[in-house]
Simulated scan of single mutants.
Amino acid sequence: MTDRAEDGPGGTTGPTVRIGVLGAARVVKTALTEPAREVPEVTVAALAARDPARAREHAARLGIPRVHDSYDALLADPELDAVYVALPNALHATWGERALRAGKHVLVEKPVTSNENEARQLARAAEETGRIVCEAMHPLYHPLNDRVRELLAAGTIGEIRHAEAHVAFPIPSAKDIRWSYELGGGALMDLGVYALALLRSYVGAGGEEEAALKDVEGALAPVRTKDVDRRVDARLRFAGGATGRIVATMWGWPPLASRCLVEGTAGRLTVLNPLGPQMFHRITVTAGGRRTRERVVKQPSTYACQLRAFARAVTGGEPLRSGPEQFVPAMAAIDAIYRRAGLPPRGAGAEAGRVAGETV
């Protein structure tokens, strides 16, 4: 790590974490380089992609100073402290583990891996190397998530009985890698992981950090391409007795929509746009014959909150909200939902992913 960073918005002086990027994906701008401007604890220092020419073009566009000719060359860079894995889902486990064993801390795009077995392997590599691995589950790090959990923990709607999360983001192009089973595609993998994370966070408020899933009671997952779900609708039961439902779609309307509902013995709480609260959001609580609405601070973005948390975990050992303790059971739940819906869990495409385009 480099010398101490200057004070920034919401930040404190401290060591700067130098991050290298694996992949020339579109998400790098939104999830890393733009929020890094708000997080002085982080420097985005290098990038590598499958196509070196594309890597140079992408790095120039994003203002990343160094480009490596291969993923392995980036992992060997002694001037990097951490790696952001922005590759297709099928490659997250392979390159996340290689980065850990190269001595780097790892921030890996969601979903953290293709399945539970890969998640356990990645968690084991982090333990063996003494490095941090964090899934990029950015909504969990925003003050909106804190406020919802605070309201639920305070008993505002009584004991939680049921929770739902609905997310939609249409992907019309059949060429998008999210429609490829070999690359770990599917609505559940792309959007359902967010819905599941939010439910586990909300149902677990006031107790565990994330509620444990007991059973998948039912799941429907109509496909668009072979074994790739365009929509998933899963009914869940948590260990504490509460039920849950997640609905995620990459097909149809409405676009860019997300909302959550939590029902308790004394009322209900709804959250509008928990995935992008920096754009707009609203919490509505109906209890005791009254309805109240509130908004939490919009800025910084969910991505900036996540990046700052990752930097502080690396430099100061602060706990993460999407580390192995959270992502291993989450991937177990994803596998279980696929099986209940009659589809195979992801994970057959590691080799195919090696030659995939980086367009997530």
Rank of each mutant, 00 (worst) to 15 (best):
G8L: 01
G11C: 07
T13I: 01
P15H: 01
V17I: 05
I19Q: 02
G20N: 02
A24Y: 03
A25G: 15
L32S: 03
L32T: 04
T33G: 04
T33S: 05
T33F: 02
T33A: 02
P35F: 05
P35R: 04
A36W: 00
A36E: 02
A45I: 03
A46K: 02
L47M: 15
A48E: 08
A49Q: 10
A53I: 09
A55V: 11
A55K: 10
R56V: 09
E57K: 14
H58Y: 04
R61V: 12
I64M: 06
H68S: 11
D72Y: 00
D77L: 04
D81S: 05
L87M: 08
P88N: 09
H92V: 07
A93V: 09
G96V: 10
R98E: 11
E109I: 04
E109N: 14
T113D: 10
N115E: 11
N117K: 14
E118V: 06
L122Q: 10
R124T: 14
A126V: 05
E128S: 09
C134A: 13
H138T: 15
H138L: 13
P139L: 08
L144I: 08
V148Q: 03
R149S: 07
L151W: 02
L152V: 07
L152H: 09
A153N: 07
A154W: 00
T156P: 01
H162K: 12
A163I: 10
E164L: 04
K175A: 13
K175L: 13
L183G: 01
L183H: 04
G184V: 04
G185C: 08
G185M: 10
G186P: 09
A187L: 02
L188H: 03
M189S: 14
D190S: 14
G192N: 09
G192Y: 09
G192R: 07
L198N: 11
R200P: 12
S201T: 06
Y202G: 08
Y202M: 13
G204Y: 03
G204V: 05
G204F: 04
G206H: 07
E208V: 12
A211N: 12
A212L: 13
L213V: 12
D215A: 14
V216I: 12
P222I: 00
R224S: 00
D227F: 10
V228E: 03
D229G: 01
R230E: 13
V232N: 03
R235H: 14
L236S: 01
G240M: 04
G240H: 12
A242T: 04
A242L: 03
T243R: 15
R245L: 11
R245M: 10
I246A: 05
V247Q: 10
M250A: 08
M250I: 12
S258F: 02
T265C: 07
G267M: 07
G276N: 13
G276R: 15
Q278N: 14
F280H: 14
T284W: 01
T284R: 13
A287V: 09
A287N: 07
V296M: 01
V297Y: 00
K298R: 13
K298V: 00
Q299A: 07
T302V: 14
Q306L: 15
A309W: 08
A309V: 08
F310H: 04
A311W: 02
P319Q: 10
P319E: 09
P319K: 08
S322G: 12
P324H: 05
E325T: 13
I337V: 11
R340F: 01
R340V: 06
G342Y: 01
R346K: 14
G347V: 05
A348G: 14
G349A: 06
G353M: 11
R354Q: 15
T359L: 12
